[in-house]
Design a protein around this nucleic acid. Structure first.
Lengths: 152, 152
DNA sequence: TGCCTGACTTTGTCCGATGCTAGCCAGCGC
DNA sequence: GCGCTGGCTAGCATCGGACAAAGTCAGGCA
């Protein structure tokens, strides 16, 4: 099980604070102060997460300058970071379904074009909707080369 | 930001070993020995995660009996657990795209009906495909009641 | 009755994530 | 230059998860 894509993903974004930073980024947050305030984990943790995510290539620092202020940097998602959107959305949906308080979900995500609510779904390359139990998992090229010795 | 569905989800499945157990469950693993062996995190961690997931209602223990063996229990996903499939799939896809080794992804997930590869996508209730930047996030009922005092 | 095996549980230790406080530093206004 | 402010960084205590090894327990079996 050495070569598992889920484990590899968790190596990069596997901590709570990292995923919360990414959540904020998807909500449109760009600046250090806003991240620190909204995540509620302290400036040190925020700075560490932003540094790690920048180093990992999920975010990039872009300079900006408010009038009368010195140049500062904001943090924008790269394509690599934006590709995590589905995962964040799916985690949010699960929380909405199974862990929301009585009042309902805190945020609602809608399609900007038509206003209808957005959800994640699975779909195959032929365009069919796919649900739990309708998938077949087969070893891919990355697995075959890994375990001549132990099966683990 | 107290009421965030992503954070609530992470309270339940926010650790690496928890998500690895869920991944194994989606690959069809049911029995303690198989979980422990394939996750590679030791029996103590495996037992703790299975216990936590059962207590949280994502899995349930179902008795079974091999001939000549005493009754044992296997762990099956409940609906609450199965609903995490999209999140696991999305994390796996990200790992395949951005963190796979040169040989390629270790597993390939295909639609059992037609054999085409499966991916997660976002779609609105009207049936439109939705991509990054095409969503509007608005406060939902759960947020409005939380912050009379501080904005945080 | 006592052994043996598989499935956990307990104990202890280590390490990384977190939270807190204080300090550094670049650069704009003065 | 000088001080002030925002954006980090360093140091430290704490806590929870990860890992290893030994202990417990149920029940089939000799």
């Amino acid at each position: 099980m050495a070569n598992c894509s889920v484990a590899r993903t968790l190596d990069v974004v596997g901590t709570r604070s990292t995923l919360l930073v990414m959540r904020e980024a998807f909500l449109g947050t760009r600046r250090f102060h806003d991240f620190a305030e909204r995540i509620g984990s302290g400036e040190a943790v925020t700075a560490a997460r932003l540094r790690d995510l920048t180093a990992a290539g999920l975010m990039e620092k872009v300079p900006y300058q408010e009038p009368g202020q010195r140049t500062r940097y904001e943090y924008q998602l790269t394509q690599k970071g934006r590709d995590l959107l589905h995962a964040i959305m799916a985690l949010r949906e699960w929380g909405d379904s199974w862990a929301a308080d009585e009042q309902g979900p805190p945020w609602i995500s809608t399609h900007t074009g038509c206003g209808a609510e957005v959800r994640t779904v699975m779909r195959c390359a032929h365009g069919h909707d796919v649900h739990f139990g309708e998938t077949t998992v087969t070893p891919g090229p990355g697995l075959i080369l890994t375990d001549p010795a132990a099966h683990s």
